[in-house]
Design a protein around this nucleic acid. Structure first.
Lengths: 126, 126
DNA sequence: CTGAATCCCAAACGATACTG
DNA sequence: CAGTATCGTTTGGGATTCAG
């Protein structure tokens, strides 16, 4: 990546529609949904437990947005009690891989980040 | 990436500190700052113009957060008028490359996303 | 169980004015 | 120029309730 940079993405202009999609994918819960579904498909409440800390409302909203953007398949089986499975579309899998790479990178670098923070904070504890 | 998945990142647990860093990096303006600085270093107002649509307040806040996390160098030259240059640290460059990959992927896929949306919307315009 | 709908609050954000 | 401070608005998001 250090070599190329063919052309920079246009996300750095206020009116760019890519920003919207980027925000869907990188939203607080969007990232976590995509990362979870990379492993396997999940049912609604399963996903809710797996992610942890997400309200029903936000999970539903996130899932709808990602489904509309073409990242998720929503498979509602007409049974009682209702059962709905969510899985990644091929495009969603690509997105999830990008996001997962980022998340994993962050995790690996977490110690360095905490070190940097300590240095930063101490330098101003004058 | 389809093969491995050595171990999933712990970001999918509410109390995980990685989430904080992930949200700094993927925040609305964080992404754009990192992407911009991947090309070259920028001064404050330069960056503001380049990104477009960001307020002074939010840009300053974003820059401070990313600096504290160890992603940015802030180089304030003691001249009048003031001049402050922002650039990526080595770690920041890694983060920016991840983020840039994501942004670029979104841009390439934008047509497919818009197609998916149209299909989704029409399927419910019953 | 899977959601939709409502209410409500806290946090994020933008605009503006001001300072070194 | 590069920020900080303040204010008012908007939005994200949780809790709760209801429906299929």
């Amino acid at each position: 990546m250090t070599e190329a940079l063919p052309e920079a993405p246009n996300v750095n202009r206020a009116t760019c529609p890519s920003r919207i999609v980027l925000e869907h994918v990188t939203s607080r819960w969007g990232i976590l949904v995509l990362a979870a579904l990379l492993e396997r498909s999940y049912r609604f409440s399963e996903l809710r437990r797996e992610i942890g800390g997400v309200s029903e409302k936000m999970l539903a909203q996130t899932l709808q947005t990602l489904e509309r953007d073409g990242f998720l398949n929503r498979d509602a089986k007409p049974v009682i009690p209702p059962r709905v499975d969510y899985s990644l579309t091929p495009m969603g899998r690509e997105a999830a891989e990008q996001v997962w790479g980022l998340a994993h990178w962050v995790e690996r670098r977490l110690p360095a980040v905490e070190e940097a923070r300590d240095a930063y904070d101490e330098a101003r504890a004058s």
